[in-house]
């Protein structure tokens, strides 16, 4: 449809309300469509690409046999690289070959296909409705109310026979009161994580930080779960820097400037372990909650709401640091019944 036609039309019926679709743009021929040499060249290129693929696959197989995994880490690197590059080459050869073939040698005349409306025509719809109506009438479901109720009840209740045993067991013993306790007990020694050496108060010099587990951790039945709750960070502060801790009046939870706080963040439970000895701030590398160790582990920044619970500590007769008791509150993230 040329512009000329449209202009004459314009004049005849005054100005049309809308523009008219000019139709598909004119087809542009490729070099290969007109020049047999170019066509032949494209064919050769496709052949070369598929040949590269074969070479790549052969290369990968050669690499598999020629590059064994040894006791040197570099052998793993070379084997991975050799096999991977061969694989990549064999795949990319096929891929680019096929696409190049489609682009240069297959017809590039655009085809127009008509769309049909998605919805069915009215006759089909009517027939469908009639089929359902007939079926419903046949079953007489509308008139037999009790039957309907019985069918629905049976279908609704039978899944419980699977769901109840599943739910009963999927949460283990469902004893969520375990959140409230750790294995820390009066007199239990503090030990270094992971070596398990007990710690003497005199070992903890000002400015140092100890990552602590309960002594004899590995003898616990569920030591992994217990460790997940019991890990503690031990820091000695210069007495002059220590603004306060969480000891209730009449008790002393720290020993000679040594304080022990739960390492499990009160936000979502990452191990908070990033201690800056100059500022006495403890930063959680997961979400950047910052606690002030010199001031009862109060939150100074970030998404946590509560201070880290303090482990009351003292020393035993041999000078080793021991717990006075379990934590006074559940450690770690908040949950609904935490304060109950």
């Amino acid at each position: 449809m040329s512009t000329h036609d449209k202009n004459t039309e314009l004049e005849r019926s005054d100005v049309p309300a809308a523009f008219e679709d000019p139709g598909l743009p004119e087809h542009r021929y490729r070099m290969g469509d007109t020049d047999p040499a170019a066509n032949k060249r494209s064919e050769r290129q496709v052949v070369v690409l598929f040949a590269i693929s074969v070479l790549g696959a052969v290369g990968a197989l050669v690499a598999y046999f020629a590059l064994p995994l040894g006791s040197d880490p570099m052998s793993v690197r070379w084997a991975t690289l050799g096999l991977g590059l061969g694989l990549a080459l064999s795949l990319l050869g096929i891929g680019t070959g096929a696409v190049h073939w489609a682009k240069t040698l297959m017809s590039d005349h655009e085809v127009t296909e008509k769309r049909k409306p998605i919805s069915s025509d009215q006759a089909t719809r009517d027939a469908a409705v009639q089929a359902l109506v007939d079926g419903a009438r046949d079953s007489a479901i509308a008139r037999r109310g009790v039957l309907k109720g019985a069918v629905l009840s049976a279908l609704a209740i039978f899944p419980l026979t699977i769901a109840v045993p599943l739910i009963g067991s999927v949460g283990g013993d469902w004893n969520i009161s375990k959140f409230r306790h750790t294995v820390w007990r009066k007199g239990r020694r503090l030990a270094i994580d992971p070596s398990g050496r007990p710690i003497k108060a005199s070992d903890v010099t000002v400015g140092s930080v100890f990552h602590v587990i309960p002594d004899g951790m590995r003898d616990e039945e569920h030591w992994m779960e217990e460790k997940a709750k019991a890990v503690v960070l031990l820091v000695r502060l210069d007495e002059r820097d220590l603004k306060g801790d969480q000891s209730p009046s009449g008790e002393t939870w720290s020993y000679d400037g040594i304080v022990a706080y739960s390492k499990i963040c009160t936000h979502v439970g990452c191990p908070v372990a990033l201690y800056e000895q100059q500022t006495h701030h403890l930063l959680c590398p997961c979400h950047q909650s910052t606690f002030d160790i010199a001031d009862g582990a109060k939150v100074v920044f970030g998404p946590a709401n509560r201070p880290l619970p303090q482990l009351p500590i003292t020393v035993d007769a041999e000078g080793y640091l021991v717990a006075q008791d379990d934590f006074a509150e559940p450690i770690g993230p908040s949950f609904w019944e935490r304060l109950k």
Binding site: D173, A228, W336
Partner: peptide
């Protein structure tokens, strides 16, 4: 608390 138990079959990590 129960959702946590359901995921891990008890206490984390289980």
């Amino acid at each position: 608390a129960f959702a946590s138990y359901m995921l891990f079959g008890g206490e984390f990590p289980g």
